[in-house]
């Protein structure tokens, strides 16, 4: 593992630099917004200067970046006035993380299954072609309609989770993760990536050598898939994190995606900026974790830039 430490440290440093760059870009972008949170308050014009200073709306870019490095993202101005953005994001992220990681794992598992069994790929094709919100809508409506019909027929009593998505339940979380994993082409992309990696490994000289010696190849081929699968985690993480906004709103889950939607709707600039930076941090962090897995799985990559 020591061989992987140096390239990984370089990549970690690169990720921090990129995160600061994202923060700078988003901060400059949000500065272009006409008006600010003070405009949403009645008769606050007289205290504009005092409120601007108190809420930190006049912070320079350098100050924002220094505060970010110290872990200070400011305070929410509209959604939860006065509460630290960091605490709000931490609570929301705790709700979103299981959903995101579940969807990531499920998309890899289903992608691997679909890559191994073309019949499953065909079966999943309509679902993977559908945008995630449409798939979620179809699942919620289909399950509710079916359950309602069964209740009316007297076959079952109303389940505790009925009707979706109003009541919090494990079923709701599982459906949300499945929708996020399958919808918007996620499984299709994972399956295509793994199929390609499998074909490349199967036709490689080392696989041919193993076959020529009469040795089993399946285990070695499966190990060879770890690095490409880790690469897919890195590339799909961005799509899944973006999908959280729609899926959390659809399934009424109070996570980071739903919080961003609320912050944008209420024009809560510090909260929106903090969530944008957190989304980038999550993407870069997952990318880094995937990179670590790739370097551990394939020592040849350790010398690559």
């Amino acid at each position: 593992m020591s061989g992987a430490a140096a390239p990984l440290a370089g990549r970690a440093l690169g990720a921090v630099v990129r995160l600061l760059l994202v923060a700078a870009l988003l901060h400059l972008l949000l500065r272009m917004a006409p008006g600010d949170a003070i405009d949403t308050l009645p008769a606050a014009e007289a205290q504009r200067a005092a409120l601007t200073a108190a809420w930190g709306l006049d912070r320079s870019l350098a100050q924002v970046l220094i505060d970010l490095l110290r872990g200070d993202l400011g305070e929410s101005l509209v959604v939860r006035p006065g509460q630290p953005v960091r605490a709000l994001i931490r609570d929301a992220a705790a709700t979103s993380a299981p959903l995101l990681l579940g969807a990531l794992g499920l998309s890899l598992a289903l992608g691997a299954l679909a890559a191994a069994r073309p019949s499953l790929r065909l079966l999943l094709a309509p679902a993977t072609a559908a945008p995630a919100f449409l798939l979620g809508f179809a699942l919620i409506s289909g399950i509710n309609e079916l359950t309602f019909a069964l209740i009316q027929a007297g076959w079952i009593g109303p389940p505790r989770w009925f009707a979706l998505p109003d009541a919090p339940s494990a079923l709701r979380g599982a459906l949300a993760a499945a929708t996020l994993a399958i919808g918007s082409g996620n499984v299709a992309a994972t399956s295509a990536g793994l199929s390609e990696a499998w074909a490349r490994a199967e036709n490689s000289p080392w696989a041919e050598a193993l076959r020529a010696r009469g040795q089993p190849t399946r285990g070695a081929l499966a190990r060879a898939l770890i690095a490409p699968a880790a690469g897919l985690i890195g590339s799909r993480a961005l799509h899944l994190i973006g999908g959280l906004v729609v899926i959390e709103k659809l399934f009424l889950i109070h996570g980071a995606g739903a919080l961003l939607w609320r912050a944008a709707l209420d024009r809560d600039l510090p909260l929106a900026l903090g969530l944008g930076i957190s989304a980038a941090a999550a993407t870069l962090g997952l990318g880094l974790a995937a990179e670590l897995l790739r370097l551990a799985a394939d020592p040849r990559l350790r010398g690559a830039p």
């Binding site: 990129r18 995160l19 760059l21 994202v22 870009l25 988003l26 972008l29 949000l30 917004a33 961005l238 799509h239 994190i241 973006g242 999908g243 906004v245 729609v246 961003l260 939607w261 912050a263 944008a264 024009r267 600039l269 929106a272 969530l275 944008g276 989304a279 980038a280 993407t283 870069l284």
Partner: peptide
């Protein structure tokens, strides 16, 4: 850096 933020997040920030 630009690619670390999901498109939906950009869309919401632009709308804001």
């Amino acid at each position: 850096a630009l690619g670390a933020v999901p498109a939906v997040v950009y869309a919401l920030l632009f709308a804001l």
